[in-house]
Design a protein around this nucleic acid. Structure first.
Lengths: 256, 256
DNA sequence: CATCATAATCTCATATTAAGAGATTTTGTT
DNA sequence: AACAAAATCTCTTAATATGAGATTATGATG
């Protein structure tokens, strides 16, 4: 995963920005990335000229306006956003909840669009905020449908989290729990991500039945009973499958 | 502006995505960018692995989830967004309108945050959608405060648009009109961007009194009279100056 | 299921050009 | 005006990006 060529090294500059560190000083970037002074400044100049970065008054750098513009384009081009919204509205009309579509990418889950009918929406994960893989109904709904060789390393890497939410002590136990999710077709989580909130999620598949995203409904725990959860689960599953079916058929493989 | 090194050439791939062309086929990219087949595929692989691009079923490429994640970070790190929101709320509380902060970057104006109290918001420029420089109160509020050497080429490049909204026939005439805007401290536009909507804008300055952004209020034309527009203009100007003052002092120059 | 057409990747010799040490200039502060 | 810090420049060398062409995946078709 270490950058091996100069192309990846420029992009690596953009990778260091995170919620914990939104602004960087050139000096710190040199240390963090291990680039020489002229090289780093060269990279910064290129990234600034392209609008990916901008410099702040106190000579730090932050992500720039080009990112904002590209995100706008992403909202217009993402098939899951475009096809998903009407279905999410169905769900928020039927229940007082937050409904969203989340993409799986890297080792993260990322909300790409959400709709809400709850008076006081409880989700702390708006568009673009990455969620960890180990907790919550969403991650589980996706993992449950991964082929074993792809799944196992993932489970092992996130075992601590998975254990803490009671999925099982060993990797094999976790796999068993996930098999049940697979059978049900949707997953449920009680307050794993946000206290008091119930998450109900089902996977979206690509044309090879490979899970690439998830539909999730988040609803206040005091609003739901066991029977209602099953009902919502069935609806979420239906919606996820319909969004899957809306995706264009045919095509080549893509790195998940 | 033509890419001169391989670093800029990778980034140039991201530049071709636009509202008119949200998805590209590799073959078309080769033609558009003039790259050889192996080189293009190399670039695509790197950009896909980093999440900047993703491939769709029918083997086209679109902007990817990393963009979404970075935009989330931008919302959290942009000083204008962070400081601007409370002021925008002031404006939307006082009037039934849409109030926004827009950055000036490249040859474009870009909304970075907006608030609305209008029943039916009329702006067609949400976060991230670039506006042209030649029309609207926003662009004018910024141009009016640019030093002449910076301004003149800009006016000449956008003369057709500027003329069509009645700012003057020649570049010199336009400069005169802008001088009046500068004196007033804010600019007004009647239906230049959206028919029936009045735009009222004032610039945000950096610590060298250089305009870098703008505050704009958009309000339905039938809701305002001349006197009210002046009142709103004064408020918008006040807000823009306060946001300017909130910016951290000191620092080095940045390319506008 | 075999064949075909297209898309994506690989190989490798060569020219291109990124990289970095250190000097120099620019910028803001005292 | 003088100083300190930040950013850029110069120039040589080693590193590596490039593309023609061959090769391998991949999905479509009969």
């Amino acid at each position: 995963m270490k950058p091996t060529n100069s192309l990846e090294r420029v992009l690596a500059v953009l990778e260091v920005f995170s919620e914990e560190r939104l602004e960087w000083m050139p000096e710190d970037l040199m240390r963090e990335l291990g680039y020489s002074r002229p090289t780093l400044y060269r990279y910064l100049k290129i990234l600034k000229d392209a609008g990916f970065l901008m410099s702040t008054r106190n000579s730090g750098v932050t992500l720039g306006p080009k990112v904002v513009e590209m995100d706008y384009l992403t909202r217009r081009s993402d098939a899951l956003v475009l096809h998903g919204v009407p279905y999410l509205k169905e769900l928020t009309t039927a229940y007082s909840c937050t409904a969203m579509v989340l993409r799986w990418y890297g080792n993260k889950i990322l909300c790409v669009v959400s709709e809400s009918s709850a008076k006081k929406p409880i989700s702390s994960y708006p568009r673009g905020r990455p969620m960890p893989l180990g907790r919550g109904a969403i991650a589980r709904s996706i993992m449950a449908f991964l082929p074993r060789p792809r799944l196992l390393p993932l489970v092992e890497r996130n075992l601590a989290d998975l254990r803490s939410v009671g999925l099982g002590d060993t990797a094999e136990d976790v796999l068993k729990s996930l098999k049940k999710v697979r059978k049900a077709g949707f997953s449920v989580a009680y307050g794993e991500v946000t206290p008091g909130a119930v998450g109900i999620a089902a996977p979206i598949f690509d044309d090879r039945h490979y899970p690439i995203a998830s539909v999730c409904v988040t609803i206040a725990g005091n609003l739901v009973t066991g029977a209602l959860i099953d009902q919502i689960g069935a609806e979420v599953r239906r919606v996820a499958l319909q969004i899957s079916a809306d995706q264009p058929r045919q095509g080549r493989k893509s790195k998940p």
